[in-house]
Amino acid sequence: MDRPTKRFLVANLLFTAGYLAVTGVMLAGVFLGPRYGILHPLTGPVRWGMSLCFGLFMVGQLWATLVLIRDSDEFVRGVLARQFILASGLAIASYSAWGFAEVFAGAQHIPGFMVYFLFWLFLGAVRPFVRSTR
């Protein structure tokens, strides 16, 4: 594995760990802790701040991706760009379609943060098929 990919994986791992840590604190502080009398509920401003943290971790992953694209050679850069454009396009398209289904067809509501999971899901799905720059 080359150095840019290693750096990308380490950075991604750290941002994912932060994301999961904040998720854990939010779950504990908002739902589980207060329910079982272990923790005081998190206050409104703290909840807002922690919600913004999720966005920052995603920006961090975006930054790591841009660094990977910058440091890779032209072939890897081209393939990565195609994969990311395809995955993000599919995630946006499918989440938007679901949004319309919610409004017009009574589909169950899915929280907005799920679009991020969809992106990674689609990225994993398109990677084996997008291996060229042509």
Partner: peptide, 22 residues
Amino acid sequence: LGVSRQAVNAIETEKHDPSLDL
């Protein structure tokens, strides 16, 4: 060349048209 093994393979198998510089 200062590129990855994958890049060389992609050029050889015509999956990548190299830039003028490369």
